[in-house]
């Protein structure tokens, strides 16, 4: 090996990430080439300095307390948010039932419901009449519905798989 060792190979050698053949060639070369030997020494020193610099960093002592406090805080926030939503739902339900049962809202509500029911009935009759008049329409609609259901199952499976991978990667909070 007459030419110098490439930076990438020397870098891998310092990290002990070369195979036995590469290692032997590099070590033979380092024994005869001062430039590469100096490069090797400098890179090794740099490596040691990085390690020393960051291992000296003081680790926060009360980290556990802070983390557990944050977890408790988020748990209580979630439960209080649930209680608030439940309370709002119950109050609104009672209010609606109360208004419907006691006030003029009952007769108006019944009237609206009756009208809507009549419209829906009329529409159903009209649609079924049109469909029965066209040949093979029912079969065609059934086929389209079947295709849509299969497509929806595939999309759902894909979404579930993607979500599972994202969760595993720790991207979901």
């Amino acid at each position: 090996m007459s030419e110098h060792i490439s930076g990438e190979l020397l870098s891998s050698y310092i990290d002990d990430e070369t195979d036995e053949d590469e290692k032997a060639i590099i070590e033979r070369h380092l024994g005869i080439c001062l430039d590469c030997h100096n490069e090797f020494v400098n890179l090794t020193l740099l490596k040691e300095q990085i390690l020393k610099e960051y291992l000296m960093v003081d680790i926060p002592v009360s980290m556990e307390d802070h983390v557990m406090a944050k977890i408790q805080q988020s748990i209580s926030q979630k439960s209080s948010s649930f209680i608030n939503h439940a309370a709002i739902f119950v109050v609104l339900s009672f209010a609606l039932v109360g208004m419907g049962a006691t006030g003029p809202f009952l007769s108006i509500g019944l009237h609206i419901f009756n009208t809507l029911f009549s419209i829906a009935g009329g529409l159903m009759y009209a649609i079924t009449s049109i469909l029965s008049a066209i040949p093979y329409m029912v079969e065609a609609i059934s086929a389209v519905i079947f295709i849509l259901i299969v497509l929806a199952i595939f999309i759902l499976r894909y979404l579930v798989n993607t979500l599972a991978k994202t969760v595993e990667a720790g991207d979901i909070s």
Binding site: P60, M63, H66, V67, K70, I71, S74, A164, V167, E168, G170, I172, S173
Partner: peptide, 19 residues
């Protein structure tokens, strides 16, 4: 410190999903 705390809180909630 903020990121460390956030990472552990995230880990706490995502841990049950770790296979």
């Amino acid at each position: 410190e903020d990121v460390t705390q956030e990472a552990f809180v995230k880990a706490y909630y995502s841990l049950p999903k770790l296979e």
